[in-house]
Design a protein around this nucleic acid. Structure first.
Lengths: 200, 200
DNA sequence: AGACCTTTATTGAACGTTCAATCAATAAAG
DNA sequence: CTTTATTGATTGAACGTTCAATAAAGGTCT
């Protein structure tokens, strides 16, 4: 069986198996054996390719974050306009991309989110992603409103996106990404509405 | 040392110690020994009063949920008006009550949230709370808009509240409850604004 | 009031289980 | 014959639970 050049294949397999295991039984019960079984390999392999369980978990989170970043970046690249509304809309769509929202990924994402409260390495990764979303939103809002309001809008829209995500991960039916996009875009339109001038 | 009538005291002590332990090292590393040490008692006591670790965790979540429900109910009782805007405002304030938002409670809340994805008993508790928030919001929105729109507004505002909570639990500085209230109330005003009629 | 018994409270050691990590063994590839 | 790939048994640590032992409190009977 053993062939050369297995490393990238196994790494991908094991990362996918990690998400499947977390989706199945949660992070707490996602043992190396269970993950290995999902990938159809033995438990020892994990230490061989990732140095240990922590290394695999970190690699899995890194993959999710980079996929998310790419989903957003791709939508913004396809944009023909430069209007803030369209850019923020693309950010919203990217965050509710099908590849991100479905089953295993969403649950794994939330599990890591909770876990990052006490694991410094995961916290670092999560913060990088978080700041990128906030900075992108803030920069676009900044183009049509004063700094203070732009910051408030960015924080609020980011919170709405995360909240929709969170609730989607918890409901048994999963996130309705079409409805989530609609709600977020509606909020965006309301935030950009110049009728309102009293908000902080 | 042993005195009678210790049960309610110990139960409260252990629930508080559970939150302290989860705040300190996270749910995964909150062992019965660590929790017991926080409460200044031995590990065996936990099985004696709660039947086991799971019983203690369930009791802890129950406590958090009932505190949250009471915080909301209290604010609504103090209301002199019956306007939907004031009622929803009270719900918002209750959800960002100081007793809920500070350190240990917020982190424990999020930890249980993630954990409830794979523990049916916690999921049940979480869902009861969730539905209560949604039903309350929906009922108030329903008074000033058609059903479909009321549902969408309730879902969106609930998501914003959860999202602000989530982000507050993750940042090292904790949640700025004043800002969170402001953002949520601003969103509420925008949702109630009749200028907008195009949303779903 | 003192002796006795039951209930309630609490401990800490022992037990059995589970898990991640290690490593010697095995084998195909080059 | 060296490198890369993989296994699975073993090891040692950590955990939750159990249980016999201990002791104070409160009640009862004399």
């Amino acid at each position: 069986m053993p062939k050369v050049g297995m490393e990238p294949i196994r790494r991908q397999q094991l990362i996918k198996a990690t998400m499947a295991a977390i989706d199945e039984v949660g992070l707490a019960d996602a043992t190396v054996m269970r993950i290995a079984r999902h990938a159809g390999v033995s438990a020892g392999i994990i230490s061989h390719y990732f140095g240990g369980k922590d290394g695999l978990l970190e690699a899995t989170m890194r993959q999710i974050l980079s996929d998310l970043g790419e989903a957003v970046a791709a939508r913004r690249r396809e944009l023909s306009t430069t209007s803030p509304r369209d850019h923020i809309g693309a950010i919203i769509d990217g965050n509710f991309d099908r590849s991100q929202v479905t089953g295993p990924v969403a649950k794994t994402w939330l599990a890591f989110w909770a876990s990052s409260m006490h694991k410094p390495e995961l916290a670092r990764l999560q913060q990088v992603n978080d700041r990128r979303l906030y900075a992108n939103l803030c920069h676009q809002f900044r183009r049509v409103m004063p700094r203070d309001k732009a910051r408030a809008c960015a924080r609020a829209l980011a919170a709405l996106i995360d909240g929709l995500w969170l609730r989607g991960a918890l409901t048994h039916e999963g996130l309705d990404s079409d409805e989530a996009r609609l709600l977020a875009r509606d909020y965006l339109d309301r935030l950009l509405d110049t009728q309102h001038t009293t908000s902080s």
